[in-house]
Structures are given as structure tokens and as C-alpha cells.
Amino acid sequence: MLTIEHLTKQYDEKKAVDDLSLHIQRGEIYGFIGHNGAGKTTTLKSIAGILSFEEGTIKIDGTDISKEPLECKKKIAYIPDNPDLYDYMTGAKYLNFIADVFGIPTDTRKEKIEKYAEIFALTDDLASPIASYSHGMKQKLAIISAWLHDPKLIIMDEPFVGLDPKAAHLLKEMMREHCDKGGAIFFSTHVLEVAEKLCDKVAIIKGGKLIKAGTMEQVKGDESLEDVFLELEAEK
């Protein structure tokens, strides 16, 4: 579903991502962990087509993001770490805007918006301007918008930040359900317990370089993910 080969992204002299390669298959929930400034967001933004990069290739379901960005973007959904949405729109308007962009028919969008708004207890707030939403509500709205068009790959940057426990639980269920249907999810997190329980595979990035990746068993063995992560972080 997602193939990253030798990805390198530089900001002036500094390499934010250095020769990173990663493969994500259908049905996989893939966790991406690393310390602050390790290069997680840069990698995710490059996959989402927001950042251009100097070297390497990113292919989504066989399509190269650099060559056919629009085709790739049709197959993905991206949720950033801080959901800065259109504050001047109401929640309903925003969701319909996203649905229009993805060409979702009226009946389908109506059904999905009602379903997900109900799940996240957001129905009563959809008519209110996004400016009046809390961080968690914006996050829920961003999640609903990501699920609207049945993307093949969902990329999320710290998706659990700001969510209440119930919403976090619902999101985990939705992630699993999405992958069971043949989709894939690539997300970054600092909550290692969540990554350990939820992810099929995990990748650890440090200083822009991928230092370990594989199934949960391959990466952590008998130890906890936290112990492995801290050990790897301590290594020079």
C-alpha cells in the first residue's frame, strides 16, 4: 500500500529525514515512533504530498506521489498533529466541503456524516462554527473527514492527542476496522502503550534515520516497547 524508498528531506543544511525506506502492506496498522524532532512529521507530510523532498520515492498503492500527486491524494487521508481547520466554517460545512472535493454523492455523505457524528457525539455541534470547537472536537471532526471517502491509506500525526478516553477507544476500533477491510494506517505517536497494543508493525526513527522497523515481535522481542525505545534512544 505504501512504499517509501530512500526518502531524504533536507531543511537548508539539516537532513530532517535521511535515506528512509519503509513498506506498509494492506491491512496493517503501522506505528511510527521517535523523539521530538526525529523526522516523523516531515515523513508523514512528505507522504501526504505537503512537502517536496530531495531524494527517494514514495508510492501509494503503486502511484508515485512526486509524479501523480493528485491520484495519490485521492487514495489517502491525512490528519496533522494540530488540526487547524477552517475556523470560519461550521462543522457541517467543513465536512461537506471535504465530501465535495472527493466527489462523494449526497446520499452517501449524508449517511456517513450522520453515522460518524453520532459515534463521536458531535451531531449537535455540526451547525456551530469550528472556531467555537475545543481541540478535541476539532480532532474528532478531522477524523470524521478522513473517514468520509474510504481512503486506502490513512496517515495520522499524533491522532490521540486531545481526544477523550471514549473517543480514543472509538478511534482505535475504527482503525482496526479500516485495516480489516483492506485499508492501511500509518500513524505517529508518543504513547508507546497504544502503539504496542494497536500496531501490527512499528518503525523507530532517530535523527531522521530509521533505526528499527518490523512486526511488534521483531522490534521488541520479550521486552516492552518502551524499554526498547529508550535503549535505542540511549545508543549514540
Binding site: F97, V101, K110, I113, D125, A127
Partner: peptide
């Protein structure tokens, strides 16, 4: 702001260009 249900007409599908124009006018 009063709690209100989102108007049904806002759920009608529009073309991308019309939707973008609506966004800019908003």
C-alpha cells in the same frame, strides 16, 4: 451560538470548483 441541526441543503453535493468558491466566500 444556538444549538441547531445542520441544514439539510448544506449536504447537497457540489462540484469541486463551486465548493472551493463557497469556501472562499465563507
Amino acid at each position: 451560538s444556538k444549538k441547531a441541526k445542520a441544514p439539510r441543503k448544506s449536504q447537497k453535493a457540489r462540484s469541486v470548483s463551486r465548493s472551493l468558491l463557497g469556501k472562499e466566500f465563507s
